[in-house]
Design a protein around this nucleic acid. Sequence first.
DNA 1: GTCCATGTTCTTTA
DNA 2: CTAAAGAACATGGA
Length: 290
Amino acid sequence: MPELPEVQTVVDTLRPNLIGRTILAVTLHRPDVLCPPGTDLAAALVGRAIGSIDRRGKRIVFTLADGSRFYVHLGMTGQLTIARAGDAVQSHTHLVIEIEDGGSRMEDSREPSSPSSILHALSSFFLRFRDPRRFGGVWWCGSGNAADANMGPEPLTLRPSQLAKRLAVTRRPVKSALLDQAVVAGLGNIYVDESLFAARIHPLARACDLSTSDVARLNRAIKSTLRRAIRHRGSTLRDYRDANGAAGGFQLLHRVYDRAGQPCRACRTPVQRIVLGGRSTHFCPRCQPG
DNA sequence: GTCCATGTTCTTTA
DNA sequence: CTAAAGAACATGGA
C-alpha cells in the first residue's frame, strides 16, 4: 500500500512518538527481513537515541544520535506502528523495538513484557514492524548513504526540466518510466495512474515523445496529486495504516485507480483498465487520448 | 481451486 | 550491448 503519501504519513505520525527517545531493546522475530543478513541490529541500536526520521522515496530513514542510519521499506503490506505492552501483537510482526518513554511514568501501569535490564526502570512502549507478504524489510546503513542508493529525485521538489531530461532518454511507456524509482522516487501504481489522469496523458505514451508542455503539466499533476493525497493521509485499500493505526482517506477520492468500468469523474466515459508491465493501469480514454 | 493485490529484483527476450 | 517484458518472491482476500 505504501507509496509516497502513505510513507510520508507514517513518518509524520512516527516523529512525535520517537524523536529524541532512546532505544531499550530490539527483538528480531524473523531475521530474514533484515539486510545485510546477519547484522547485529541490537548491538547497533540499543542505548542510542533516535535523532530524526525522514522519507526518501518510499523508504523510512531513521538517523540515530550518533549519525548511523537504518531504513524500513514497507513493501506491499508493511506496517510500522506504535504500541503499548498490553496491545495484542498481530501475526507477521517481524521486528519489535522497545523505546524509552520520555514522558511521566505514572500514566501507564502496564509493565513491559520482559523486564530484564536496569534500562526498564522507566516505562516504555514499542515500535512494531509487521509485513505479511514480506516484500518489505529493514536495511542497516551504518554511516553510509545506502538509503539514497538507486533513488531518483524527490517528486515534490522536482523541476520540470529535470523530469523532462529523465523522460527524454527512454522509449518506455510514460507509466513504466514513472514507476521506476530510479527515474522519480516515491510514485507507485496508484499515484502514477492518478497523476497521468490529472495531466491528461495516456499511460502508453512513449516517455520520450512527451512535449515540453506535456512534461510541465505532468510535473504539476504529480505534485498536486501527491500533496492532496498527503492531506488526506494516504490511501487505504486494504492493509495501510499510519503509525497510530489510523486508515487513510484518499482512496475515496481516486479518479481512475481501481475504478475500471465506472464513469470518469470528469466526462462520464467508463474508466478503462489495461495491463502494462504486469501492473493494472487505469485511465479515461476520452480525457487521456492516445 | 482461481485470480488479484499499494513493490522490487532477477531473468529472459527482443 | 541495451532496453523492455516477464517471472519470481509470500500471503491473504474475493
